[in-house]
């Protein structure tokens, strides 16, 4: 007994399949669309937290304060013992902030130029970098973490890292000035 010939059966299946696909798409869409929207708004909030933490860190001022403090405490005695000319030091912040290392990971990077002139003449110029690809020989590895890790506790890792980088870069600047001063 034959209910359908081969062609008829496949024709029936062919008629049934598009509604099945369509219902699958509708159900999938109902699940995925709100999920994507929620994830997107969560990601946006994470970025907002990181950006506001970065703004609040006031990196340039922290770097200046740390450099002055270290210069006063670590270079003052050396300066008193010599009758050297005054040295004019400039720090140019080229870049600092969060760079993407991979789709799910961010790294805090910083790059500054140290320019020092003595008696109006060029005396020292060096770029100090904390980054994933290239970094100064005495620089620590950059702080990397997932988006969630960077954003948690209102961007605590971003704020901490900015403060640590300011101190580390200040220490690196003072080391270079001290080494350059050695006879």
């Amino acid at each position: 007994m034959h209910f359908f010939s081969r062609g008829v059966a496949s024709g029936v299946l062919g008629l049934a399949a598009p509604p099945m696909y369509a219902s699958g798409l509708v159900v999938g869409g109902i699940i995925l669309a709100p999920g994507a929207l929620i994830l997107s708004s969560m990601e946006q909030r994470m970025w907002e937290r990181m950006v506001s933490a970065l703004k609040a860190a006031d990196f340039e001022q922290s770097l200046l304060r740390a450099t002055k403090a270290r210069a006063n405490s670590e270079l003052a005695t050396a300066a008193q013992s010599t009758t050297a000319d005054s040295i004019n030091v400039e720090l140019v912040v080229n870049a600092y902030g969060l760079a993407s290392q991979s789709p799910d990971r961010l790294c805090f990077i910083a790059s500054i130029d140290l320019i020092a002139n003595r008696a109006g003449e060029h005396w020292l110029r060096e770029r100090l970098i904390i980054s994933t690809r290239e970094r100064s020989p005495d620089a620590p590895p950059p702080q990397c973490a997932s988006h969630e890790g960077m954003a948690q506790n209102e961007g605590q890792m971003v704020r901490n890292t900015a403060a640590i980088y300011a101190e580390v870069l200040a220490a690196m600047v003072i080391d270079r000035l001290r080494n350059r001063s050695k006879p």
């Binding site: 620590p140 590895p141 702080q143 990397c144 969630e148 640590i164 101190e167 580390v168 220490a171 690196m172």
Partner: peptide
Amino acid sequence: LGDLENALPAQL
């Protein structure tokens, strides 16, 4: 270990 804070750098 990806989200662990870095060690305090030697300079500090």
